[in-house]
Design a protein around this nucleic acid. Structure first.
Lengths: 398, 398
DNA sequence: AAAAGTTTGTATATCGATTGAACTAAGTTT
DNA sequence: AAACTTAGTTCAATCGATATACAAACTTTT
């Protein structure tokens, strides 16, 4: 049974539009909101008053006159509540507290060496507890928790598989809701990153974009018509396991020639094992890691630079597949591999341009993340904020 | 400026819901519509009366009583107007006239041998003119023309490129609007096919599906949340040019190792050239064509059957990429290669299953087109019908 | 400095769509 | 024949947006 229309729906739509307008373009007067939205002055007045009663909008004094009565400027009350965002990495937990506008208020980052489910869960709870305890007082308090995890999350928020964390079938959202008594939203890391860049980063001006998270593996977050597309069961975006060599290397996933075997951090580390590197690993071990390779590249060791080049080419191949598939306005490359932008970019773009149809070649914007390591954590907190507004029957992204 | 809410919007939403309910589940009484939609009896009555004034709904006498007054049964008036659908193939033009419910009333199929732009355009106009001239009288007459073309169509309806028809930058929609004086909707063949299957074929029950059109080349039509996704500029779905062999055969598109080089009709014909076939080509020439190969397969010639097997495997590889990317509920395979289902299916599914993540393996329904050669033409006519309802401020697909 | 004009924001009446309640119509069951 | 059921209409009530009028506060012109 579809949702039918009534006056309540009308009010909900208009109230959302008014709030959204103020949120994105404040400070704004009631008159400006009226002319920006096309809503009648009186309608804006009454909706703004209700939003003020709900602490979501506040008056901030008068603005300059343009030949008449001075306008009363309105502001989105971004500190009406706070949201927790978590980027649950394979070897770290990055936790932030943000206001309703995505500004970071508190931040906490812990390294994880013991990857057992128990330990990770414990550390996760400690991190969240800490930012919640220190959160400033506000009308709504902590309105929710958003978490990005490196794995597959179904559309009920259940973690189904994490290739690098050995978590299987964990009801993370249930566990944390119980622990903290506030709504918890779990999504995969690439979706969170896509939301982060769309809301706060390089993707702000675009409504059809693909966020390509290149870390240990590769996952993509798909934003179409301004909204995340999660697939029928929540498992879209597993493009790391797209075949780009029909008879290529075997992958853990069961497939052969998966993109991430050639274009991810793991691909880089694997080919690095063959080289004897003159730089020590950061954790003292013998295995090379990304930081070691980056330092080697900075020292202009040709073998290492050429390795980045090869990986960059394979990234470009995948990007051309993405463009042919989705025809997005923009592709944003994020996660750890962005730190190697300097050595990846050129070979990547060369491969992309040489393989792409002319119509796409210069139409699609290819950029690196503008939020750096914070795409996913900000996206995660935004998911919580967005859910909060949903619960208030106000919608942010429409 | 976003669309704001007012009473007119409410009415539009509810009227659409009422019409949609009647269209899909008729015959229905006003009372049934009310309980199915949740709308008040009075509301349904007044909206139905308006729809009857607009000739979109009609009464069809009383139905059986269930212990009270007999209900007056309502029907969607599918013959209030007619739409033209065209599947513009590389070597044929299939034209139909359908009622508003997608039932074919007239059909015309012409073979094209002279592929010059002029000749194709002339033939196209003749075909359309003929079905329009013979269309039955109706309140709205011919409400529009929908056309599926084998190439790239931008979001303004301009044909930008047809790899197998040598059409470039043709304003097909402009030309035909001028000629016939009714709205023309041009889209690519895969999008039309996707819409056809979604509305009338195998995809009726699904809202996230991918239609894979395998003919001379490969294109896909993407239906997400019940709606076609066309990409930022209208060029989504060019998955035929997705790389599946990083250093594979060069393709006309500039890329290497494109999927359609291994999994399309062309791929089949190319490998067939190596074989001396004991069957004559249909047009008397020496070059093998699909029909010849199908006859050879029916005669159980092992080399030919194995060729189909190889192509089937490559199709399966691409399908697994599609599943990893979109996580759709369903994949529908359409266009000419469906005629080889018998020999393609098993190798295709084998490759697919062996390459797909366990979560997807049995969750995604993989089917062959249920409309056969008519997916695209019915989809095209539906696009015209759907535009017609848009113009009436009534929406079908929401 | 007074008058005229402008801009902001509020108050009030009107409009239009849904809804609830009452009602009519037309059947079935007891 | 009376009681009950179901279908569909009518009409007043309600609610939200809008138009109009108006008050408040400021700028520009005379």
């Amino acid at each position: 049974m579809k949702r039918t229309g009534d006056q309540y729906l009308v009010k909900q739509i208009n109230k959302s539009i008014v709030l959204d307008t103020i949120r994105r373009q404040s400070p704004l007067s009631r008159a400006q909101v009226s002319s920006l939205t096309g809503l009648h002055k009186g309608t804006v007045s009454s909706l703004v008053n209700e939003l003020m009663e709900n602490d979501l909008v506040k008056e901030i004094g008068t603005g300059p006159s343009s030949g008449g009565r001075k306008p009363v400027m309105l502001l989105f009350n971004k500190t009406a509540g706070y949201a927790v965002g978590v980027d649950l990495g394979v070897n770290y937990i990055l936790t932030v507290l943000t206001d309703l506008d995505g500004n970071i208020v508190l931040e906490r980052n812990v390294k994880i060496s013991d990857r057992s489910t128990e330990n990770v869960l414990t550390q996760l709870k400690i991190s969240i507890r800490e930012v919640i305890d220190r959160s400033p007082p506000s009308p709504y308090g902590v309105i929710g928790i958003g978490i990005g995890v490196p794995g597959m999350v179904d559309n009920k928020g259940q973690v189904r598989m994490t290739p690098n964390l050995q978590w299987n079938e964990i009801d993370l959202s249930g566990v944390l809701t119980k622990e903290f008594g506030c709504p918890v939203r779990v999504d995969n890391e690439a979706n969170a990153g896509a939301m982060g860049e769309k809301q706060f980063g390089a993707g702000r001006k675009f409504s059809d974009l693909i966020y390509v998270s290149i870390g240990i593996g590769i996952g993509i977050g798909i934003v179409l018509r301004g909204e995340l597309y999660r697939g029928a069961s929540g498992f879209s975006g597993e493009m790391g396991h797209m075949t780009i060599e029909a008879n290529g290397k075997p992958c853990k996933c069961g497939n052969k020639g998966c993109w991430e075997l050639y274009a991810s951090e793991n691909a880089l580390l694997e080919s690095a094992e063959a080289l004897p590197l003159p730089v020590q690993s950061t954790d003292g071990g013998n295995a090379p890691d990304l930081d070691v390779l980056l330092r080697a590249a900075h020292e202009e060791i040709p073998e290492v630079i050429s390795m980045f080049g090869t990986v960059g080419q394979f990234i470009g191949i995948g990007l051309s597949n993405i463009v042919n598939t989705f025809n997005p306005e923009q592709i944003i490359i994020g996660n750890r591999m962005t730190t190697a932008e300097k050595w990846l970019k050129e070979p990547m773009l060369d491969a992309f341009h040489s393989r792409t149809l002319p119509v796409h070649r210069h139409r699609t914007k290819i950029e690196f993340s503008s939020l750096g390591t914070h795409s996913a954590v900000l996206g995660a907190s935004h998911l919580a904020v967005s859910d909060f507004f949903d619960r208030m029957n106000l919608y942010m992204d429409r």
